[in-house]
Design a protein around this nucleic acid. Structure first.
Length: 258
DNA sequence: CGTATCCTGACC
DNA sequence: GGTCAGGATACG
């Protein structure tokens, strides 16, 4: 269930469950996943110890004591189920890592779009990511420079992970609503002041979601996402839904007029 | 830039 | 049976 705040929470659980422990078995359980990571290669993880678990954008990186890195990405519907080696596998188990203390970490993903890879020691892994939303180097000027290089409407540009790492479909729409910017506004010509407002809004929506679990209660607090036809929380105008670059965009046609 | 594609389930 | 889904990428 991943946008950046959900990945952040997944990383915290993964870290808690695995750091300092040694892998005793690794299984790749779904053919689509096996195309990226063969069972043979996964098997080489046996005996390696997890040194650290970190997040970059929506990517999760497990550093191993032998220098290799396990690299996971949830895409649309992935999540970790953390259980015990003796438990029955979850219904949508796609891969699993078992540890020397009996802990098992299961990649649980109904759509099986998640990815899992193992990178060699010293491998140059380019995740293709821009700055994190909370990166102090991400100033309004820096964001303006990045946006000026892009063509097309702002909303799809915000989903480009090279612009800002970790922003997804929900929080892109939420941030635009808070900043009162139309999702169709050309990214390249947004004025400085509006970009500054957008950056503040991005930080606000991400910060508010981080730490909180992604509960129904949180969803009900969203300003525009999945609220087509419902009144704008600011002006009462019905929220509209359009499709941009194949993704749903929700916005208020009154508050976000340009 | 938009579109199709990877997958599978939920819902109309 | 069609549409949609919180992501990313290859392609035209």
């Amino acid at each position: 269930m991943p946008e950046l705040p959900e990945v952040e929470s997944a990383v915290a659980r993964l870290r808690q469950a695995t750091v300092g422990k040694t892998i005793v078995a690794a299984r790749v359980l779904h053919p689509a996943l096996q195309r990226r990571l063969s069972q043979r290669k996964a098997g080489t993880l046996r005996g390696a110890r997890v040194v650290s678990v970190t997040r970059r954008g929506k990517h999760q990186l497990l550093a191993l004591d032998d220098g290799r890195t396990v690299h996971a990405h949830f895409r649309m519907t992935g999540d970790w189920t953390i259980d015990h080696v003796d438990d029955p596998l979850p219904r949508f188990a796609r891969a699993s890592l078992s540890f020397d203390d009996g802990t098992r970490v299961v990649l649980d993903d109904p759509r099986a779009l998640s990815t899992l890879e193992v990178h060699a020691k010293n491998a140059n892994v380019d995740l293709g990511l821009g700055p994190e939303p909370d990166d102090p180097a991400l100033t309004a000027d820096a964001l303006k420079a990045a946006l000026e290089r892009k063509r097309g409407p702002i909303k799809p540009v915000l989903l480009d992970q090279r612009v800002i790492a970790g922003l997804g479909n929900i929080y892109a729409a939420e941030a635009l609503w808070h900043a009162r910017i139309s999702p169709a506004a050309p990214a390249a010509s947004l004025p400085q002041k509006r970009i500054a407002a957008l950056l503040r809004a991005i930080r606000k929506v991400i910060a508010r979601a981080t730490g909180a679990r992604y509960t129904d209660d949180d969803v009900s607090k969203l300003a525009v996402y999945d609220r087509e036809g419902l009144p704008c929380r600011r002006c009462g105008t019905p929220i509209e839904r359009v499709v941009q670059a194949g993704r749903s965009t929700y916005f208020c046609p009154t508050c976000q007029a340009d």
